[in-house]
Design a protein around this nucleic acid. Structure first.
Lengths: 107, 107
DNA sequence: TAGTAATATATATAGATTTTAATATTTATA
DNA sequence: TATAAATATTAAAATCTATATATATTACTA
């Protein structure tokens, strides 16, 4: 694999490496939303939401469509949700492993 | 989803958000390797490889097993490779989309 | 066989760069 | 003018990368 592609992949994962951005993507999983809707769900300043949306937009992960003064956001590729699910599975495996290890230690 | 889990997920993706670490994981996909083997493939200082391995180790993504003075590394969960494949697919979709858009603009 | 060198890996340190998150300002539309 | 969203700015925190140092194991050798 060429070195450039590795950098692109790394950039992609970097876009996902922030709790606010993960939260946004999970909210969008339940349906497209306006910025102010995201802001209300997350309970943070709308400028902060806009900042994080800009990062996801620049990486082509979400799409914003204007509707008057509002902007409706959606996730561009549904495969992203599959990716998040696999991440969760990996996470669960790792957690199970840790729990098992602690149990073994107490035997 | 609890806020903590979002942070954990973000941490996980952060571990993947570096070109050297992506390279390491792709090399390990072809089979477990010693640090010096990784270092030779990557053509960088072994201290740099160790640093990056430490990050992957701390996030429970890889496992290092001592064998004399050497340490053999492997990926803990094969699901990780599935995750990388899906990332690649998302990436291809995005690229196709961009190409299509450029073509449309030239019509 | 004790002492020392060589090898493999890990950790520590530090300066440069990047990211974060909060606030302020700007733009666009109703 | 009021509202919705985006962008700019900034200080603090985190990350990166290179280099230096430390540790642990094996090999050598006097």
């Amino acid at each position: 694999m060429p070195q450039e592609l590795q950098s692109f992949k790394a950039e992609f994962f970097k876009a996902l490496s922030n709790p606010l951005r993960i939260r946004i993507l999970e909210l969008l999983r339940d349906g497209d939303k306006y910025v102010h809707e995201l802001q209300e769900h997350m309970g943070i300043d709308s400028a902060v939401v806009s900042q994080q949306l800009a990062i996801l937009r620049n990486r082509n992960i979400v799409l914003g469509v204007k509707d008057g003064t509002k902007v409706m956001y959606s996730v561009r590729d549904p495969l992203l949700f599959e990716l998040l699910d696999i991440a969760k599975q990996i996470f669960n495996h790792s957690l199970n492993h840790t729990i098992q290890m602690l149990q073994d230690m107490n035997q």
